[in-house]
Nucleic acid binder design. Sequence first.
DNA 1: TTCTAAAATTGAGTCAATTCTGTTTTTATG
DNA 2: CATAAAAACAGAATTGACTCAATTTTAGAA
Lengths: 204, 204
Amino acid sequence: MSGLRARQKADRHRRIIEAAAALFRDAGYEGAKIETIAAQAEVSVGTIYNYYQNKGDILGAIVSMEVNEVLNAGQGVVANPPANVGDALDTLLGIYIEHSLHYLSKEMWRQAMAISTQLPDSPFGQAYTALDRALTEQIRALIARLQAIGLVRRDIDGQALGELVFNNMNMMFIEFVKRDEARIAELRAAIRRQNRILVTAIAA
Amino acid sequence: MSGLRARQKADRHRRIIEAAAALFRDAGYEGAKIETIAAQAEVSVGTIYNYYQNKGDILGAIVSMEVNEVLNAGQGVVANPPANVGDALDTLLGIYIEHSLHYLSKEMWRQAMAISTQLPDSPFGQAYTALDRALTEQIRALIARLQAIGLVRRDIDGQALGELVFNNMNMMFIEFVKRDEARIAELRAAIRRQNRILVTAIAA
DNA sequence: TTCTAAAATTGAGTCAATTCTGTTTTTATG
DNA sequence: CATAAAAACAGAATTGACTCAATTTTAGAA
């Protein structure tokens, strides 16, 4: 049961994703027609829908890969954070933000975010929510680490703080991808300014 | 130039919105077909597209009315806030949240939010961004008021704090509308818990 | 090898948003 | 009042995501 069929399946998955990624990049999400993706991937339209529930799920698969890379990169910071609360947060969030436009254009992010709120119960909608949670959890882990080191007061509610920091960054990121002319440097500066309030409140 | 034509125009606008609102409520956003809205409003499909760029903009008009009511209600709190930082924030955000499901179902919110990120440059996309800014501004105004009264430290960056509070609430609200079973009371409690960190940091 | 049931693929067909083009209504002017 | 230009309307045609019944391919038993 794991021979030819499984190999073909994996291969078709890959071909579909590659075709879609290329087209999303070149023509934008709306501009990429399923029919064209199917032709590029050398499968039929029906087959695409056998692999993904809808167009959004194809984008979802690409987004998930991207965010998982980001999560991986973040691990390093959590394990070995800068010896200063503000810098630690800035470094972790900086990784998230700088990585974010590596494979995905702002337009792709806009679509992905839109789909995840529009269809929260679709495979991608659930995956996206899980990714958000994973990012929140990583921030919370960083805070816990800083508390352990003694850089953050122990009596701070780490869970609530992690949510606050993530929610703020995420909302700022949403606004960022909504404006094509917005620059990463400005985004990071704005978030730093907002976090400064927190940093002074929680530093040990 | 301001006689019959203008009156008919206003009347058609009203009829379209009323028909759409009723249908969105009964059949959901996706379930409401433009053709049906047109029939209900006694105009043709083409006419609807003469008044609104797309289906989302119709929903947008409804959402805007709702949010403007909320902004109005918020004014009262800003003018006369509870004599305690935590309660003041909780009261204002509480008004936002409690009002939010008055005319709009969670499904309608999901669609509205999705459209506003998907098409940030459409009429509704821009209007939605403006509404977000207005809410942020109102929170900032409350903070300024609390600083004037002496309940919040004067050296706090009111702008950044306002953004932080709004962004966190908004993100929590997004997660709230994504889960049909989520309850308002839990949402408010979670936000209160997050804000507690801020409150202790900024109270004079 | 040959056969059969299960799994997967195909692509023409459906459905609903949006566009397009010709017609009608309104306004402004002589 | 007549009339031409401008604005708005109607609804048929287009478009593109998604479905589904028929066909093909695969796995494994005989």
